[in-house]
Design a protein around this nucleic acid. Structure first.
Length: 417
DNA sequence: TAGGCCATCTGGTCCT
DNA sequence: AGGACCAGATGGCCTA
């Protein structure tokens, strides 16, 4: 069955005794992904070796480089090979590690003499033996390479875990992970630098704002927004609304921006392209979500937690007054603490998905009859055929009154806060 | 169905 | 000689 040459013999032993020499038998994929061992066709048929290559499905088993993680023991039915059971693979290398326990030697047994140096005669290997040796070496190399890539992927997974992503249930690709990590580190370093400048007095705290120029240099992966961007989106408006209706239309934008980035600074603020949806952080009218199919408006964030009265008051003072000469309440406007919370996150996410997935009304005029608005007392306003925006399932309701003489684009989507 | 992403195999190179 | 590393090839899976 096997060659009689010792080296040949050992090589074969190495290939089947080490715990990394088989096809996926040594690596336990905790997730058992379809592309891992389960569906990978075996190019090397090892059935003739008498070794079962059944994958282990224990989810909490991970290969370790330490001896306490014993992978498996070689089956004992390979009887042709003496000392077979002395090999107990204890690591993920191809180097066979012999057991510390040794069989007691028989003192009466004559010692075998081995030739050394030039006196040693090696037997010629047959082509089939050479082929087998090469094949086994190739199997070992494949297994090492497989383990190496698995360790690399595990490192990438650990890196993904420390990166903020949005939506959080999506998985960054490898290249996205690396690019995002680069940008994230850059953003953190810039933040630290800014804080240091504030602490050292180089920048007065009152003048500190997140640099939009720095934001432009970011290169976010498509369809994902990190929490820093989200935080910036929820940054309160800095100036009053001069347009009258408190809304901006950012329709027509599509990625990439002319500067090649997902970010674009305009006179009105910062635009962030997320897939086919453009998110605006505008300085005048609040935050806006737009898409190629329309635009969605998003209001200033809540700074009052779950206090709906405070939230409504804040929003009404900001957008819903029937008296447009009424200015913001500076005390409320400047209260920006805690704008990044779970509630705002959910609101943003819902508004984002709505803007992303919504479709234009098939019958524009007919939908006008359903247009609805609310005043600050939460009274419903129906504008009939000359109403302002749709209240269908495609839209969020706006509980704030905007003013009779204000015309809105029917594609505007408002997020209820 | 094309393209992106991924896992795996494979041979080559470099180093110990 | 053998291990680490790399890049190309290949095929499967998924999505637009």
């Amino acid at each position: 069955m096997f060659g009689t040459d010792f080296e040949d013999y050992c090589d074969f032993n190495d290939s089947i005794c080490s715990n990394d020499s088989g096809i996926e038998r040594s690596y336990v994929d905790p997730l058992m992904t379809p592309t891992s061992a389960c569906n990978t066709p075996l190019k090397h048929n090892t059935s003739d070796l008498g070794v079962s290559l059944t994958s282990c499905k224990e989810s909490n088993v991970r290969r370790k480089l330490f001896t306490d993680d014993l992978g498996y023991r070689i089956p004992e039915h390979v009887e042709d090979i003496k000392e077979f059971n002395e090999f107990q693979p204890i690591n993920n290398t191809s180097t066979p590690v012999k057991s510390k326990e040794r069989k007691p030697k028989d003192p009466n047994k004559p010692k075998r003499k081995y030739a050394n140096g030039k006196n040693r005669v090696t037997r010629c290997k047959s082509p089939t033996q050479i082929l087998r040796i090469k094949r086994n070496r190739r199997m070992k190399a494949n297994d090492r390479e497989r383990n190496r890539m698995h360790m690399l992927n595990e490192a990438l997974d650990r890196l993904r875990c420390v990166l903020p992503t949005f939506p959080e249930d999506t998985k960054l690709t490898k290249i996205e992970t690396l690019r995002f990590a680069h940008n994230y580190i850059f953003a953190l370093s810039q933040t630290l630098e800014s804080l240091d400048n504030i602490n050292s007095g180089k920048i007065p705290p009152g003048e500190y704002n997140m640099s939009y120029e720095k934001l432009q240099s970011f290169n976010f992966p498509s369809d994902k927004v990190n929490k820093d961007a989200f935080r910036e989106i929820f940054s309160p408006s800095k100036t009053d609304d001069n347009s009258g209706d408190g809304y901006r239309s950012f329709q027509g934008f599509s990625k990439p921006f002319p500067n090649g980035s997902n970010f674009l600074q305009t006179a009105e603020g910062v635009l962030i392209n997320v897939g086919n949806v453009t998110v605006s952080v505008n300085n005048n009218g609040g935050n806006c979500i737009t898409s190629t199919t329309g635009s969605g408006f998003f209001t200033n964030p809540s700074s009052y937690g779950d206090d709906m009265f405070q939230q409504n008051y804040y929003n009404q003072r900001t957008y819903c007054s029937t008296n447009y000469s009424e200015s913001y309440d500076p005390g409320i406007q400047n209260d920006s603490k805690e704008y990044f919370n779970q509630k705002n996150y959910e609101i943003f996410k819902n508004a984002f998905e709505t803007a992303k997935n919504r479709k234009p009304p098939s019958d524009y005029a007919a939908n006008y009859t359903n247009f609805t608005n609310y005043n600050q007392n939460n009274d419903k306003y129906n504008y009939g055929n000359d109403g302002y925006y749709c209240n269908s399932s495609y839209y969020y309701n706006d509980q704030r009154y905007v003013g009779k003489d204000v015309y809105r684009c029917p594609s505007v989507v408002n997020a209820r806060i």
